[in-house]
Design a binder for these strands. Structure first.
Lengths: 236, 236
DNA sequence: GAGAAACAGTGTCTGGCGGACACTGTTTGT
DNA sequence: ACAAACAGTGTCCGCCAGACACTGTTTCTC
């Protein structure tokens, strides 16, 4: 019996300090998570190891297991730490403006911590900060005729889009980097096999302003939500 | 110099057999990829190792390296193998029906091979089959006033949504499984802290038909695209 | 104040991983 | 006939997550 789920929940939601009899802990969950974030930011999640985290803190690997049951739980703490508090909604903004700002903030988070993409695959326990992000969207859509589940679905839709864009544009910062090689190779392949993929080849050849993918999808989603809202509120 | 990108491209796009002088290879990329898919389907991508793949084929681990430069390239082959050919578009269908069918097919693929979610994070070289999926979307949107990049953006939007839904509903098959525990724990936390997340708590308490997230988002996206198309084609 | 319980951090070990490299044996072109 | 090319093997290395027994320190309870 591993009970990893409950361990994670307790770690993320209820660490109200300890009674304690022996020596005081020299570390803290916060410091450990911060060290993990630092490593993951610089070298990626794949390069994250207990050894490295411990080394950065000048402790031994095994000492970390006094604070954290395992690597998975450490990553959950890192996610919660890197997510941070969601942006405060602007006062005078309507739902559309709020969701737009929210999406851009989320995209910024992914850009700052690309490993969040790897760390948040699959179903997992969300921490309070992550839930606050979700709450923001549901709140913004309150009172427009949408049901509760619909508002949740809308949040998932929005987050999924930002995530997909972040994933696609990962590593394509101005520097070029080693990822540019991939795109170049892929582009060459598409051109070389243009007969099999005429539409994609033509689309890629079109010299238009790029990097609009985030806003393009965002506007389509918001248009779609607006249509639903208008239908529900009777065009008021 | 690793040249991993070129290795992968060559593996996925151009393996026109070899001239060859020595003994004939007993394995093939197809068989190796199929073995990998089998393991990943059953135990997940995390449990995939060269040892296991080789063991399933009754070969030694190192023999696989005669066919594949490394594990990353093996996974790329597995993705291409599991993706399969995209669904043929129905003849009389308009763009909206085609994209709906496409999205459901993609969702099916993710349901059949959940590890595809893990295997397709980050920028990578797409194989011909994966590109064919993309091509289908771009083709379906041809001739409706959208620019090439816009059609590509729409494809990314659509794929990103399906992906996000697949990710969220992973492991929540009818059986319940160990993932249900996570959801239960999370739900308990939300109820317990309902003061901090009133909107989410209310939305989760709403006893509505669930599992509509895929179609909900899909319809919003398609509505948004329809609005754009109508605007572009002058309402024709 | 004395002793014991609780606890923090360490050192050692195991099983598994990806992969480098040298090797054996087989096939085939010259 | 022979040598080059090649398929598959065996051994080795460094790294990983984590189990477990251990030492030393702190603090609560007699």
């Amino acid at each position: 019996m591993h009970e990893t789920a409950n361990d994670t929940v307790r770690l993320l939601w209820g660490p109200p300090a300890k009674p304690s009899r022996g020596p005081k802990p020299a570390l803290s969950l916060e410091r450990i998570a911060a060290a993990g974030v630092e490593i993951a930011d610089e070298e990626g999640l794949g390069a994250l190891s207990m050894q490295k985290v411990a080394g950065l803190l000048d402790f031994t690997k095994m000492s970390l297991y006094r604070y954290v049951p395992g690597k998975a739980e450490l990553i959950a703490l890192m996610v919660e730490s890197a997510a941070g508090e969601p942006p405060a909604p602007a006062d005078g903004a309507d739902w559309r403006e709020r969701l737009t700002a929210w999406a851009h903030h989320l995209a910024d988070s992914f850009a700052r911590h690309p490993w969040l993409l790897d760390a948040t695959v699959g179903p997992r326990v969300m921490g309070p900060k992550e839930l606050s992000w979700l709450e923001q969207v549901v709140v913004a859509l309150d009172g427009h005729g949408l049901t509760g589940p619909e508002r949740m679905d809308a949040a998932v839709l929005l987050a999924g889009h930002v995530r997909g864009i972040a994933q696609q544009s990962r590593g394509t910062g101005a520097s070029g980097g080693p990822e540019a090689e991939l795109l170049a190779a892929l582009g060459a392949m598409v051109r070389q096999h243009a007969d099999r993929f005429p539409a994609v080849a033509a689309a890629m050849a079109d010299p238009d302003g790029r990097d609009r993918a985030l806003d393009f999808g965002l506007e389509r989603i918001l248009d779609g939500l607006a249509a639903l809202i208008e239908r529900r509120t009777g065009g008021a």
